[in-house]
Design a protein around this nucleic acid. Structure first.
Length: 156
DNA sequence: GCCAACGTTGGC
DNA sequence: GCCAACGTTGGC
C-alpha cells in the first residue's frame, strides 16, 4: 500500500529532529498548526501510513532532515482547549474543534540533509510547493517524483 | 535583525 | 464585501 507524501516544516528552536528522537517511541503529536489550509490537510487528507519529510526551517541551512510516517490520522488538537497554552483558541469547543493534528513517527534520519538551496538548484524540483515564492504553508503535499528525487539527493 | 510575503482581523 | 492595519513566517 502506498500512501501520499507530505512535507512538514518545523522551526528547530520549537521542535527539532533531536526532540523527535528523544520522544517516546520516536513519535510526536503534530499539534499547534493554526493555518486553515494546513488544517484541512491534517483533518481530511493525511492518512495513516502516509510518508512525511521532516523539514527544519529558520536554521542556518534550512533542510529536509528526516523521513517520518503518519501513525495516527486527524484528530482534535488538544492545545486549542487549554487556556494557558500558546495555541489556545477561544472559538474552539470540544464538541466542535477547529484545529486538528496527526501523530508522526520517525522512520529514518537522512544520511545527508537536503538543503533548501540544493532543492532550488534542482530543475526536477522546480514545481515543489516549498519553493514557491512566499510559501508559508507548514504542512504541504509533495508528489511522488519530487519525493523520490529528494530521497536520491539525500544519498550523496 | 531585516523585511517581503502572506493570512487574519475588524471597521466601515 | 472591501481593504487597511497588523502580526507572523521564514529566508537571508
Amino acid at each position: 500500500m502506498t500512501g501520499r507524501f507530505w512535507l512538514f516544516k518545523t522551526d528547530p528552536e520549537d521542535f527539532s529532529l533531536d526532540d523527535l528522537k528523544k520522544s517516546a517511541a520516536q513519535t510526536t503529536g503534530w499539534s499547534g498548526v493554526r493555518n486553515y489550509q494546513a488544517r484541512n490537510f491534517l483533518r481530511d487528507e493525511i492518512k495513516t501510513g502516509d510518508e512525511v519529510f521532516f523539514y527544519h526551517s529558520s536554521s542556518d541551512s534550512p533542510s529536509v532532515v528526516a523521513v517520518c510516517e503518519i501513525v495516527k490520522e486527524g484528530y482534535a488538537d488538544e492545545t486549542q482547549f487549554i487556556k494557558t497554552d500558546l495555541h489556545f483558541d477561544p472559538k474552539a469547543k470540544p464538541e466542535n474543534p477547529v484545529w486538528f493534528q496527526v501523530d508522526i513517527k520517525l522512520i529514518k534520519e537522512l544520511d545527508n540533509p537536503v538543503s533548501l538551496q540544493k532543492m532550488k538548484e534542482n530543475k526536477k524540483l522546480k514545481d515543489l510547493l516549498l519553493l514557491k515564492r512566499g510559501n508559508r504553508l507548514s504542512v504541504m503535499p509533495i508528489n511522488e517524483n519530487e519525493r523520490n528525487e529528494i530521497l536520491l539527493m539525500s544519498e550523496s
